[in-house]
Write a protein that binds this DNA or RNA. Sequence first.
DNA 1: TCGCGCACTTGATCTGGGTCAAAGAATTCT
DNA 2: AGAATTCTTTGACCCAGATCAAGTGCGCGA
Lengths: 248, 248
Amino acid sequence: MLNEKTVSHSVECGDCPIRHRAVCARCETDELERLEEIKYYRSFEAGQTVIWSGDRMDFVGSVVSGIATLTQTMEDGRTQMVGLLLPSDFVGRPGREGSAYDVVATTDLVMCCFRKKPFETMMERTPHIAHRLLEMTLDELDAAREWMLVLGRKTAREKIASLLTIIARRDASLNLQTPKGVMVFDLPLTREAMADYLGLTLETVSRQISALKRDGVIALQGKRHVTVPDFARLLEEAGDDSDGGMLA
Amino acid sequence: MLNEKTVSHSVECGDCPIRHRAVCARCETDELERLEEIKYYRSFEAGQTVIWSGDRMDFVGSVVSGIATLTQTMEDGRTQMVGLLLPSDFVGRPGREGSAYDVVATTDLVMCCFRKKPFETMMERTPHIAHRLLEMTLDELDAAREWMLVLGRKTAREKIASLLTIIARRDASLNLQTPKGVMVFDLPLTREAMADYLGLTLETVSRQISALKRDGVIALQGKRHVTVPDFARLLEEAGDDSDGGMLA
DNA sequence: TCGCGCACTTGATCTGGGTCAAAGAATTCT
DNA sequence: AGAATTCTTTGACCCAGATCAAGTGCGCGA
Protein backbone atom coordinates (compact mmCIF):
# COMPACT_ATOMS: atom_id res chain seq x y z
CA MET A 1 0.00 0.00 0.00
CA LEU A 2 1.15 3.52 -0.66
CA ASN A 3 1.78 5.59 2.41
CA GLU A 4 2.98 9.09 3.14
CA LYS A 5 6.60 8.16 2.90
CA THR A 6 6.54 6.38 -0.43
CA VAL A 7 4.45 9.13 -2.00
CA SER A 8 6.75 11.92 -0.95
CA HIS A 9 9.72 10.76 -2.98
CA SER A 10 7.89 11.53 -6.18
CA VAL A 11 9.75 12.46 -9.34
CA GLU A 12 8.92 15.80 -10.89
CA CYS A 13 6.95 15.37 -14.02
CA GLY A 14 8.60 17.08 -17.01
CA ASP A 15 8.48 20.83 -16.77
CA CYS A 16 5.44 21.24 -14.56
CA PRO A 17 6.07 23.79 -11.82
CA ILE A 18 4.53 21.30 -9.43
CA ARG A 19 4.66 17.52 -9.51
CA HIS A 20 1.08 16.54 -10.20
CA ARG A 21 0.14 14.25 -7.42
CA ALA A 22 -2.02 11.95 -9.48
CA VAL A 23 0.50 10.43 -11.75
CA CYS A 24 3.99 11.15 -10.62
CA ALA A 25 4.11 9.68 -7.15
CA ARG A 26 6.56 6.81 -7.27
CA CYS A 27 7.18 7.47 -10.94
CA GLU A 28 9.62 5.20 -12.57
CA THR A 29 11.41 6.37 -15.66
CA ASP A 30 9.51 4.45 -18.29
CA GLU A 31 6.15 5.45 -16.83
CA LEU A 32 7.18 9.07 -16.73
CA GLU A 33 8.14 8.86 -20.38
CA ARG A 34 4.86 7.29 -21.33
CA LEU A 35 3.04 10.08 -19.48
CA GLU A 36 5.12 12.72 -21.22
CA GLU A 37 3.99 11.39 -24.57
CA ILE A 38 0.30 12.02 -23.91
CA LYS A 39 0.66 15.20 -21.88
CA TYR A 40 -0.37 18.69 -23.01
CA TYR A 41 -1.13 22.04 -21.42
CA ARG A 42 -4.24 24.20 -21.52
CA SER A 43 -4.50 27.81 -20.38
CA PHE A 44 -7.63 29.69 -19.42
CA GLU A 45 -8.34 33.29 -18.54
CA ALA A 46 -10.10 34.31 -15.34
CA GLY A 47 -13.82 33.79 -15.77
CA GLN A 48 -13.48 31.37 -18.64
CA THR A 49 -15.41 28.10 -18.53
CA VAL A 50 -13.23 24.99 -18.79
CA ILE A 51 -16.16 22.67 -19.40
CA TRP A 52 -19.93 22.80 -19.06
CA SER A 53 -21.96 20.32 -17.09
CA GLY A 54 -23.10 17.54 -19.39
CA ASP A 55 -20.44 18.18 -22.00
CA ARG A 56 -18.31 15.37 -23.25
CA MET A 57 -15.00 15.39 -21.37
CA ASP A 58 -12.21 13.63 -23.19
CA PHE A 59 -9.37 14.50 -20.85
CA VAL A 60 -8.24 14.32 -17.25
CA GLY A 61 -5.66 16.57 -15.67
CA SER A 62 -4.41 18.53 -12.76
CA VAL A 63 -4.27 22.22 -11.94
CA VAL A 64 -0.78 23.65 -12.37
CA SER A 65 -1.49 27.24 -11.36
CA GLY A 66 -4.57 29.31 -10.67
CA ILE A 67 -7.92 28.27 -9.27
CA ALA A 68 -10.99 26.63 -10.71
CA THR A 69 -14.37 25.76 -9.24
CA LEU A 70 -16.84 22.92 -9.70
CA THR A 71 -20.46 24.09 -9.59
CA GLN A 72 -23.89 22.58 -9.86
CA THR A 73 -26.86 24.61 -11.05
CA MET A 74 -30.60 24.03 -10.62
CA GLU A 75 -33.07 24.88 -13.40
CA ASP A 76 -34.20 28.00 -11.56
CA GLY A 77 -30.65 29.31 -11.37
CA ARG A 78 -29.70 28.49 -7.79
CA THR A 79 -26.08 27.36 -7.78
CA GLN A 80 -23.90 25.47 -5.34
CA MET A 81 -20.17 25.12 -5.62
CA VAL A 82 -19.20 21.54 -4.87
CA GLY A 83 -15.45 21.72 -5.26
CA LEU A 84 -12.58 24.17 -5.19
CA LEU A 85 -9.65 23.17 -7.39
CA LEU A 86 -6.32 24.47 -6.19
CA PRO A 87 -2.90 23.77 -7.68
CA SER A 88 -2.13 20.02 -7.71
CA ASP A 89 -5.82 19.04 -7.58
CA PHE A 90 -7.01 16.50 -10.07
CA VAL A 91 -9.95 17.00 -12.43
CA GLY A 92 -11.98 14.45 -14.34
CA ARG A 93 -12.75 10.84 -13.79
CA PRO A 94 -11.53 7.81 -15.63
CA GLY A 95 -14.44 5.76 -16.89
CA ARG A 96 -16.91 8.63 -17.17
CA GLU A 97 -18.18 10.13 -20.39
CA GLY A 98 -19.18 13.65 -19.49
CA SER A 99 -18.65 16.22 -16.79
CA ALA A 100 -21.30 16.34 -14.08
CA TYR A 101 -20.42 19.92 -13.16
CA ASP A 102 -19.49 23.25 -14.63
CA VAL A 103 -15.77 23.80 -14.28
CA VAL A 104 -14.87 27.49 -14.28
CA ALA A 105 -11.53 29.28 -13.95
CA THR A 106 -11.85 31.94 -11.26
CA THR A 107 -8.32 33.20 -11.86
CA ASP A 108 -6.00 32.73 -14.80
CA LEU A 109 -5.48 28.99 -14.93
CA VAL A 110 -3.01 26.50 -16.35
CA MET A 111 -3.85 22.84 -16.43
CA CYS A 112 -1.74 19.83 -17.27
CA CYS A 113 -3.95 17.44 -19.21
CA PHE A 114 -3.89 13.91 -20.53
CA ARG A 115 -6.24 12.56 -23.15
CA LYS A 116 -8.55 10.22 -21.33
CA LYS A 117 -8.25 7.08 -23.42
CA PRO A 118 -4.44 6.78 -23.31
CA PHE A 119 -4.48 7.75 -19.64
CA GLU A 120 -6.93 4.96 -18.87
CA THR A 121 -4.84 2.51 -20.83
CA MET A 122 -1.79 3.56 -18.86
CA MET A 123 -3.68 3.24 -15.62
CA GLU A 124 -4.50 -0.36 -16.40
CA ARG A 125 -0.87 -1.15 -17.08
CA THR A 126 0.37 0.73 -14.02
CA PRO A 127 -1.38 -0.34 -10.82
CA HIS A 128 0.16 2.29 -8.60
CA ILE A 129 -1.43 5.07 -10.66
CA ALA A 130 -4.83 3.53 -9.95
CA HIS A 131 -3.91 3.30 -6.27
CA ARG A 132 -2.82 6.91 -6.20
CA LEU A 133 -6.01 7.99 -7.90
CA LEU A 134 -8.05 6.01 -5.39
CA GLU A 135 -6.22 7.69 -2.56
CA MET A 136 -6.84 11.13 -4.02
CA THR A 137 -10.50 10.38 -4.60
CA LEU A 138 -10.86 9.25 -0.99
CA ASP A 139 -9.30 12.55 0.09
CA GLU A 140 -11.79 14.44 -2.06
CA LEU A 141 -14.61 12.42 -0.56
CA ASP A 142 -13.45 13.33 2.93
CA ALA A 143 -13.28 16.98 1.94
CA ALA A 144 -16.79 16.83 0.47
CA ARG A 145 -18.12 15.25 3.65
CA GLU A 146 -16.41 17.80 5.83
CA TRP A 147 -18.09 20.43 3.71
CA MET A 148 -21.47 18.78 4.24
CA LEU A 149 -21.08 19.52 7.94
CA VAL A 150 -20.28 23.13 7.11
CA LEU A 151 -23.28 23.50 4.82
CA GLY A 152 -25.72 21.64 7.02
CA ARG A 153 -24.90 22.78 10.52
CA LYS A 154 -22.68 25.84 10.72
CA THR A 155 -23.75 29.47 11.10
CA ALA A 156 -22.85 32.09 8.51
CA ARG A 157 -19.94 33.32 10.64
CA GLU A 158 -18.62 29.79 11.12
CA LYS A 159 -18.97 29.11 7.41
CA ILE A 160 -16.84 32.13 6.50
CA ALA A 161 -14.23 31.20 9.09
CA SER A 162 -14.18 27.62 7.79
CA LEU A 163 -13.58 28.79 4.25
CA LEU A 164 -10.78 31.10 5.38
CA THR A 165 -9.03 28.25 7.22
CA ILE A 166 -9.18 26.09 4.10
CA ILE A 167 -7.71 28.79 1.90
CA ALA A 168 -5.11 29.72 4.51
CA ARG A 169 -4.01 26.12 4.92
CA ARG A 170 -3.69 25.50 1.21
CA ASP A 171 -1.79 28.73 0.81
CA ALA A 172 0.51 28.00 3.70
CA SER A 173 1.57 24.69 2.20
CA LEU A 174 2.80 26.59 -0.86
CA ASN A 175 4.30 29.69 0.74
CA LEU A 176 6.83 30.76 3.31
CA GLN A 177 6.38 30.22 6.99
CA THR A 178 5.01 33.19 8.88
CA PRO A 179 5.45 34.05 12.55
CA LYS A 180 3.69 31.67 14.87
CA GLY A 181 -0.07 31.72 14.31
CA VAL A 182 0.02 34.58 11.81
CA MET A 183 -1.14 33.94 8.28
CA VAL A 184 -1.39 36.18 5.24
CA PHE A 185 -3.04 35.37 1.95
CA ASP A 186 -5.20 36.67 -0.90
CA LEU A 187 -8.79 35.63 -1.37
CA PRO A 188 -8.95 33.96 -4.77
CA LEU A 189 -12.74 34.24 -4.90
CA THR A 190 -15.27 37.04 -5.27
CA ARG A 191 -17.85 37.49 -2.52
CA GLU A 192 -20.37 35.89 -4.82
CA ALA A 193 -18.22 32.81 -5.40
CA MET A 194 -17.70 32.51 -1.65
CA ALA A 195 -21.48 32.69 -1.20
CA ASP A 196 -21.94 29.93 -3.78
CA TYR A 197 -19.48 27.76 -1.92
CA LEU A 198 -21.04 28.42 1.48
CA GLY A 199 -24.72 28.26 0.61
CA LEU A 200 -25.19 31.92 1.51
CA THR A 201 -25.95 35.19 -0.29
CA LEU A 202 -23.16 37.58 -1.18
CA GLU A 203 -24.64 40.20 1.18
CA THR A 204 -24.35 37.84 4.12
CA VAL A 205 -20.78 36.96 3.14
CA SER A 206 -19.89 40.64 3.04
CA ARG A 207 -21.54 41.34 6.39
CA GLN A 208 -19.83 38.44 8.13
CA ILE A 209 -16.43 39.37 6.75
CA SER A 210 -17.01 42.89 8.07
CA ALA A 211 -17.99 41.42 11.44
CA LEU A 212 -14.84 39.24 11.63
CA LYS A 213 -12.80 42.33 10.77
CA ARG A 214 -14.59 44.43 13.40
CA ASP A 215 -13.94 41.71 16.00
CA GLY A 216 -10.23 41.52 15.17
CA VAL A 217 -10.30 37.94 13.93
CA ILE A 218 -8.97 39.06 10.56
CA ALA A 219 -7.63 42.26 9.02
CA LEU A 220 -8.09 43.35 5.42
CA GLN A 221 -5.78 45.32 3.18
CA GLY A 222 -8.00 46.27 0.27
CA LYS A 223 -10.82 43.85 -0.42
CA ARG A 224 -8.93 40.66 -1.04
CA HIS A 225 -5.73 40.64 0.98
CA VAL A 226 -6.27 39.01 4.37
CA THR A 227 -4.14 38.91 7.51
CA VAL A 228 -4.99 36.42 10.23
CA PRO A 229 -3.22 37.53 13.41
CA ASP A 230 -4.10 34.38 15.34
CA PHE A 231 -4.90 31.27 13.38
CA ALA A 232 -6.05 29.37 16.45
CA ARG A 233 -8.68 32.05 17.03
CA LEU A 234 -9.91 31.64 13.47
CA LEU A 235 -10.18 27.88 13.95
CA GLU A 236 -12.22 28.50 17.05
CA GLU A 237 -14.55 30.77 15.10
CA ALA A 238 -14.90 28.01 12.52
CA GLY A 239 -16.18 25.69 15.25
CA ASP A 240 -13.35 23.39 14.27
CA ASP A 241 -11.38 21.74 17.04
CA SER A 242 -8.78 19.97 14.94
CA ASP A 243 -6.00 22.24 13.73
CA GLY A 244 -5.04 19.75 11.03
CA GLY A 245 -1.48 19.70 12.32
CA MET A 246 -0.74 23.10 10.83
CA LEU A 247 0.60 24.75 13.95
CA ALA A 248 3.71 23.79 15.82
CA MET B 1 -11.92 -0.08 -18.20
CA LEU B 2 -14.81 -1.63 -16.37
CA ASN B 3 -18.24 -0.67 -17.61
CA GLU B 4 -21.83 -1.51 -16.73
CA LYS B 5 -21.83 -4.65 -18.79
CA THR B 6 -18.69 -6.27 -17.46
CA VAL B 7 -19.71 -5.52 -13.87
CA SER B 8 -23.14 -7.05 -14.17
CA HIS B 9 -21.92 -10.60 -14.85
CA SER B 10 -20.45 -10.78 -11.36
CA VAL B 11 -20.23 -14.06 -9.51
CA GLU B 12 -22.09 -14.30 -6.23
CA CYS B 13 -19.73 -14.26 -3.34
CA GLY B 14 -20.16 -17.29 -1.13
CA ASP B 15 -23.42 -17.25 0.76
CA CYS B 16 -24.00 -13.49 0.83
CA PRO B 17 -27.60 -12.65 -0.04
CA ILE B 18 -26.24 -9.99 -2.32
CA ARG B 19 -23.05 -9.97 -4.35
CA HIS B 20 -20.98 -7.26 -2.70
CA ARG B 21 -20.16 -4.86 -5.43
CA ALA B 22 -16.68 -4.06 -4.21
CA VAL B 23 -14.98 -7.34 -4.61
CA CYS B 24 -17.05 -9.76 -6.61
CA ALA B 25 -17.52 -7.92 -9.88
CA ARG B 26 -15.69 -9.95 -12.51
CA CYS B 27 -14.64 -12.45 -9.89
CA GLU B 28 -12.58 -15.27 -11.13
CA THR B 29 -12.52 -18.50 -9.20
CA ASP B 30 -9.16 -18.20 -7.49
CA GLU B 31 -9.82 -14.62 -6.41
CA LEU B 32 -13.17 -15.61 -5.00
CA GLU B 33 -11.50 -18.34 -2.99
CA ARG B 34 -8.87 -15.98 -1.64
CA LEU B 35 -11.62 -13.59 -0.60
CA GLU B 36 -13.57 -16.38 1.09
CA GLU B 37 -10.56 -17.12 3.25
CA ILE B 38 -10.47 -13.68 4.82
CA LYS B 39 -14.21 -13.02 4.92
CA TYR B 40 -16.36 -12.91 8.06
CA TYR B 41 -19.73 -11.57 9.11
CA ARG B 42 -20.73 -9.10 11.78
CA SER B 43 -24.24 -8.43 13.05
CA PHE B 44 -25.48 -5.36 14.86
CA GLU B 45 -28.75 -4.44 16.50
CA ALA B 46 -30.67 -1.30 15.63
CA GLY B 47 -29.11 1.64 17.42
CA GLN B 48 -25.78 -0.07 17.98
CA THR B 49 -22.59 1.77 17.03
CA VAL B 50 -20.41 -0.07 14.53
CA ILE B 51 -17.42 2.18 15.08
CA TRP B 52 -16.75 5.54 16.70
CA SER B 53 -15.08 8.42 14.93
CA GLY B 54 -11.35 8.28 15.59
CA ASP B 55 -11.31 4.61 16.52
CA ARG B 56 -8.92 2.28 14.87
CA MET B 57 -10.67 0.50 12.01
CA ASP B 58 -9.02 -2.76 11.04
CA PHE B 59 -11.58 -3.96 8.54
CA VAL B 60 -13.42 -2.99 5.40
CA GLY B 61 -16.71 -4.44 4.27
CA SER B 62 -20.09 -4.03 2.69
CA VAL B 63 -23.60 -3.87 4.03
CA VAL B 64 -25.47 -7.13 3.47
CA SER B 65 -28.79 -6.16 5.02
CA GLY B 66 -30.09 -3.28 7.09
CA ILE B 67 -29.04 0.34 7.10
CA ALA B 68 -26.19 2.25 8.69
CA THR B 69 -25.30 5.93 8.78
CA LEU B 70 -22.07 7.91 8.73
CA THR B 71 -22.20 10.94 11.02
CA GLN B 72 -19.93 13.79 12.00
CA THR B 73 -20.32 15.56 15.33
CA MET B 74 -19.09 18.98 16.49
CA GLU B 75 -17.89 19.53 20.05
CA ASP B 76 -21.09 21.33 20.98
CA GLY B 77 -23.17 18.36 19.86
CA ARG B 78 -24.41 19.52 16.48
CA THR B 79 -24.40 16.53 14.14
CA GLN B 80 -24.50 16.09 10.40
CA MET B 81 -25.01 12.80 8.64
CA VAL B 82 -22.61 12.54 5.73
CA GLY B 83 -23.53 9.18 4.32
CA LEU B 84 -26.34 6.67 4.25
CA LEU B 85 -25.19 3.07 3.88
CA LEU B 86 -27.72 0.82 2.17
CA PRO B 87 -27.26 -2.83 1.24
CA SER B 88 -24.30 -3.32 -1.13
CA ASP B 89 -22.61 -0.10 0.00
CA PHE B 90 -18.98 -0.31 0.95
CA VAL B 91 -17.54 0.91 4.26
CA GLY B 92 -13.98 1.71 5.18
CA ARG B 93 -11.02 2.80 3.22
CA PRO B 94 -7.90 0.95 2.29
CA GLY B 95 -4.82 2.81 3.44
CA ARG B 96 -6.45 4.61 6.35
CA GLU B 97 -5.88 3.91 10.00
CA GLY B 98 -9.03 5.09 11.73
CA SER B 99 -12.61 5.96 10.97
CA ALA B 100 -13.32 9.65 10.37
CA TYR B 101 -17.00 9.24 11.24
CA ASP B 102 -19.34 7.53 13.63
CA VAL B 103 -20.91 4.54 11.92
CA VAL B 104 -24.25 3.60 13.48
CA ALA B 105 -26.75 0.87 12.63
CA THR B 106 -30.20 2.45 12.31
CA THR B 107 -31.86 -0.90 11.75
CA ASP B 108 -30.64 -4.41 12.47
CA LEU B 109 -27.56 -4.74 10.34
CA VAL B 110 -25.42 -7.48 8.83
CA MET B 111 -22.09 -6.65 7.31
CA CYS B 112 -19.70 -8.76 5.30
CA CYS B 113 -16.21 -7.82 6.41
CA PHE B 114 -12.62 -8.39 5.42
CA ARG B 115 -9.64 -7.75 7.64
CA LYS B 116 -7.95 -4.71 6.18
CA LYS B 117 -4.39 -5.95 5.78
CA PRO B 118 -5.16 -9.10 3.78
CA PHE B 119 -7.73 -7.16 1.76
CA GLU B 120 -5.11 -4.57 0.86
CA THR B 121 -2.66 -7.26 -0.08
CA MET B 122 -5.26 -8.81 -2.32
CA MET B 123 -6.06 -5.49 -3.85
CA GLU B 124 -2.45 -5.05 -4.87
CA ARG B 125 -2.41 -8.42 -6.54
CA THR B 126 -5.76 -7.94 -8.23
CA PRO B 127 -5.93 -4.71 -10.23
CA HIS B 128 -9.60 -4.93 -11.09
CA ILE B 129 -10.54 -4.81 -7.40
CA ALA B 130 -8.73 -1.49 -7.13
CA HIS B 131 -10.50 -0.29 -10.25
CA ARG B 132 -13.86 -1.33 -8.89
CA LEU B 133 -13.14 0.41 -5.62
CA LEU B 134 -12.13 3.56 -7.47
CA GLU B 135 -15.36 3.44 -9.43
CA MET B 136 -17.40 3.04 -6.26
CA THR B 137 -15.55 5.86 -4.54
CA LEU B 138 -16.22 8.14 -7.50
CA ASP B 139 -19.92 7.26 -7.23
CA GLU B 140 -19.86 8.13 -3.54
CA LEU B 141 -18.14 11.40 -4.34
CA ASP B 142 -20.85 12.25 -6.84
CA ALA B 143 -23.50 11.42 -4.27
CA ALA B 144 -21.77 13.60 -1.67
CA ARG B 145 -21.61 16.50 -4.11
CA GLU B 146 -25.23 16.10 -5.07
CA TRP B 147 -26.01 16.27 -1.38
CA MET B 148 -24.01 19.48 -1.03
CA LEU B 149 -26.49 21.10 -3.41
CA VAL B 150 -29.36 19.79 -1.28
CA LEU B 151 -27.81 21.10 1.95
CA GLY B 152 -26.68 24.42 0.57
CA ARG B 153 -29.49 25.56 -1.65
CA LYS B 154 -32.72 23.65 -1.20
CA THR B 155 -35.68 24.58 0.97
CA ALA B 156 -36.89 22.29 3.75
CA ARG B 157 -39.68 20.92 1.56
CA GLU B 158 -37.28 20.24 -1.30
CA LYS B 159 -34.85 18.57 1.10
CA ILE B 160 -37.51 16.14 2.34
CA ALA B 161 -38.62 15.39 -1.21
CA SER B 162 -34.99 14.82 -2.23
CA LEU B 163 -34.45 12.34 0.58
CA LEU B 164 -37.64 10.49 -0.31
CA THR B 165 -36.55 10.14 -3.93
CA ILE B 166 -33.22 8.69 -2.85
CA ILE B 167 -34.82 6.13 -0.56
CA ALA B 168 -37.50 5.32 -3.11
CA ARG B 169 -34.95 4.77 -5.84
CA ARG B 170 -32.75 2.54 -3.73
CA ASP B 171 -35.76 0.57 -2.61
CA ALA B 172 -37.10 0.19 -6.13
CA SER B 173 -33.87 -1.36 -7.33
CA LEU B 174 -34.31 -4.11 -4.75
CA ASN B 175 -38.06 -4.69 -4.89
CA LEU B 176 -40.85 -5.52 -7.30
CA GLN B 177 -42.02 -3.15 -9.97
CA THR B 178 -45.04 -1.06 -9.05
CA PRO B 179 -47.61 0.48 -11.38
CA LYS B 180 -46.28 3.30 -13.47
CA GLY B 181 -45.10 6.17 -11.30
CA VAL B 182 -46.36 4.65 -8.04
CA MET B 183 -43.86 3.76 -5.36
CA VAL B 184 -44.25 2.23 -1.93
CA PHE B 185 -41.57 1.94 0.73
CA ASP B 186 -40.76 2.15 4.41
CA LEU B 187 -38.75 4.98 5.89
CA PRO B 188 -35.70 3.38 7.47
CA LEU B 189 -34.92 6.50 9.50
CA THR B 190 -36.46 8.31 12.44
CA ARG B 191 -37.48 11.92 11.97
CA GLU B 192 -34.40 12.89 13.94
CA ALA B 193 -32.09 10.90 11.66
CA MET B 194 -33.74 12.49 8.64
CA ALA B 195 -33.16 15.89 10.20
CA ASP B 196 -29.49 15.04 10.75
CA TYR B 197 -29.16 14.07 7.13
CA LEU B 198 -30.95 17.15 5.83
CA GLY B 199 -29.46 19.81 8.09
CA LEU B 200 -32.86 20.52 9.65
CA THR B 201 -34.57 20.01 13.03
CA LEU B 202 -36.87 17.08 13.63
CA GLU B 203 -39.83 19.46 14.08
CA THR B 204 -39.29 20.92 10.62
CA VAL B 205 -39.00 17.43 9.14
CA SER B 206 -42.27 16.45 10.75
CA ARG B 207 -44.02 19.62 9.57
CA GLN B 208 -42.83 19.25 5.99
CA ILE B 209 -43.84 15.60 5.82
CA SER B 210 -47.28 16.63 7.05
CA ALA B 211 -47.39 19.33 4.39
CA LEU B 212 -46.45 16.91 1.60
CA LYS B 213 -49.18 14.57 2.86
CA ARG B 214 -51.73 17.38 3.00
CA ASP B 215 -50.83 18.35 -0.58
CA GLY B 216 -51.23 14.79 -1.83
CA VAL B 217 -47.58 14.35 -2.86
CA ILE B 218 -47.26 11.36 -0.53
CA ALA B 219 -49.58 9.26 1.63
CA LEU B 220 -48.68 7.68 4.95
CA GLN B 221 -49.84 4.43 6.48
CA GLY B 222 -48.69 4.69 10.07
CA LYS B 223 -45.62 6.84 10.57
CA ARG B 224 -43.11 5.07 8.43
CA HIS B 225 -44.86 3.44 5.47
CA VAL B 226 -44.97 5.78 2.51
CA THR B 227 -46.92 5.66 -0.74
CA VAL B 228 -45.90 7.96 -3.57
CA PRO B 229 -48.80 8.10 -6.04
CA ASP B 230 -46.82 10.03 -8.66
CA PHE B 231 -43.06 9.80 -8.56
CA ALA B 232 -42.63 12.51 -11.20
CA ARG B 233 -44.51 14.91 -8.93
CA LEU B 234 -42.15 14.07 -6.07
CA LEU B 235 -39.14 14.73 -8.30
CA GLU B 236 -40.63 18.08 -9.17
CA GLU B 237 -41.03 18.88 -5.48
CA ALA B 238 -37.38 17.93 -5.00
CA GLY B 239 -36.39 20.56 -7.54
CA ASP B 240 -34.72 17.76 -9.43
CA ASP B 241 -35.13 17.64 -13.18
CA SER B 242 -33.28 14.42 -13.87
CA ASP B 243 -35.29 11.30 -13.16
CA GLY B 244 -32.15 9.21 -13.06
CA GLY B 245 -33.57 6.84 -15.65
CA MET B 246 -35.97 5.31 -13.15
CA LEU B 247 -39.16 5.81 -15.12
CA ALA B 248 -40.01 4.15 -18.40
C1' DT C 1 -9.76 63.74 -16.47
C1' DC C 2 -14.12 62.15 -16.49
C1' DG C 3 -17.40 58.68 -16.19
C1' DC C 4 -18.68 54.04 -16.54
C1' DG C 5 -18.86 49.43 -14.62
C1' DC C 6 -17.84 46.14 -11.48
C1' DA C 7 -17.07 44.37 -6.87
C1' DC C 8 -18.28 45.35 -2.59
C1' DT C 9 -20.69 47.45 1.61
C1' DT C 10 -24.47 48.80 4.36
C1' DG C 11 -29.28 49.58 5.68
C1' DA C 12 -34.29 48.27 6.20
C1' DT C 13 -37.49 44.84 6.17
C1' DC C 14 -39.33 40.16 5.66
C1' DT C 15 -39.63 35.20 6.35
C1' DG C 16 -38.31 30.22 6.60
C1' DG C 17 -36.96 27.47 9.73
C1' DG C 18 -35.28 27.19 14.61
C1' DT C 19 -36.61 27.07 19.49
C1' DC C 20 -39.48 26.15 23.27
C1' DA C 21 -43.46 23.85 24.92
C1' DA C 22 -47.24 20.67 25.17
C1' DA C 23 -49.71 16.91 23.64
C1' DG C 24 -50.80 12.71 21.12
C1' DA C 25 -49.56 7.63 19.18
C1' DA C 26 -46.90 3.38 19.54
C1' DT C 27 -44.05 0.14 21.81
C1' DT C 28 -42.04 -2.11 25.59
C1' DC C 29 -41.78 -3.21 30.49
C1' DT C 30 -43.88 -4.70 34.88
C1' DA D 1 -53.92 -3.92 31.88
C1' DG D 2 -51.50 0.06 33.27
C1' DA D 3 -47.10 2.64 33.33
C1' DA D 4 -43.11 4.27 31.30
C1' DT D 5 -40.48 5.34 27.37
C1' DT D 6 -39.72 6.65 22.79
C1' DC D 7 -41.23 8.67 18.50
C1' DT D 8 -44.05 12.02 16.39
C1' DT D 9 -47.12 15.94 15.69
C1' DT D 10 -48.64 20.58 16.34
C1' DG D 11 -48.72 25.34 18.16
C1' DA D 12 -46.67 29.96 19.41
C1' DC D 13 -42.98 32.83 19.04
C1' DC D 14 -38.39 34.43 17.57
C1' DC D 15 -34.21 35.23 15.02
C1' DA D 16 -30.46 34.40 11.47
C1' DG D 17 -30.08 35.10 7.14
C1' DA D 18 -32.63 36.30 2.69
C1' DT D 19 -34.41 39.96 -0.02
C1' DC D 20 -34.79 44.51 -1.69
C1' DA D 21 -32.59 48.80 -2.21
C1' DA D 22 -29.18 52.41 -1.91
C1' DG D 23 -24.89 53.68 -1.80
C1' DT D 24 -19.22 53.52 -1.94
C1' DG D 25 -14.85 53.06 -3.98
C1' DC D 26 -11.70 51.48 -7.19
C1' DG D 27 -9.85 50.45 -11.85
C1' DC D 28 -10.03 51.16 -16.58
C1' DG D 29 -10.92 52.85 -21.12
C1' DA D 30 -12.01 56.96 -23.91
